[in-house]
Design a protein around this nucleic acid. Structure first.
Length: 152
DNA sequence: GCCAACGTTGGC
DNA sequence: GCCAACGTTGGC
């Protein structure tokens, strides 16, 4: 079982949106970066635990936890001409982009703020701090525990 | 809204 | 294959 961090702009899709999904899960789609794609396609497995990170908003930080309920499969949006994520170069035979399905697990009482993560000596090597533009990124078990220890 | 970091595109 | 131009991400 591995740990990850997925970013989303809460104005687009927040942890509350996931919590309120009637069916209990949602597809994590629209990832259009090759490094992130490779992680989704090759590494993310059902049962993995994921931090839900709110980016590009007033309060940036980790909002809670979700669980992967389906491992990587071709992102349907790349084949949908009406989607903003449509990719003319993708085909069913050779899909370019991948999605996973995620389920809500937990919302933290308070956001764990990026500025506090940056101040935590145990987290100076976290990808979130050093590779700030990657929207799907690995979290080590030690980092996972260090973040959980920051909960109010 | 600004801008630094960095990923992608395309001409050569 | 290099690299300049351009586009996007994302914190502030």
């Amino acid at each position: 079982m591995n740990y990850w961090l997925f970013k989303s702009e809460p104005d687009e899709y927040s942890i509350d949106d996931l919590k309120n999904e009637a069916r209990g899960w949602e597809i994590w789609d629209g990832i259009r970066n090759y490094q992130a794609r490779n992680i989704l396609r090759d590494q993310v497995a059902s049962g993995d635990q994921v931090f839900f990170y709110h980016s590009s908003c007033k309060q940036v930080g980790i909002a809670g936890i979700m669980t992967v309920v389906r491992a990587g499969y071709p992102d349907p949006a790349q084949f949908d001409e009406t989607s903003r994520y449509y990719d003319v170069k993708a085909s069913l035979d050779s899909p370019r982009w991948f999605s996973v399905d995620v389920a809500f697990k937990e919302k933290f009482d308070d956001l764990i703020l990026l500025k506090d993560i940056k101040r935590n000596p145990a987290l100076v090597n976290m990808a979130l701090v050093n590779q700030s533009r990657l929207s799907i990124q690995p979290v080590t078990p030690i980092e996972w525990q260090a973040v959980l220890a920051m909960r109010a």
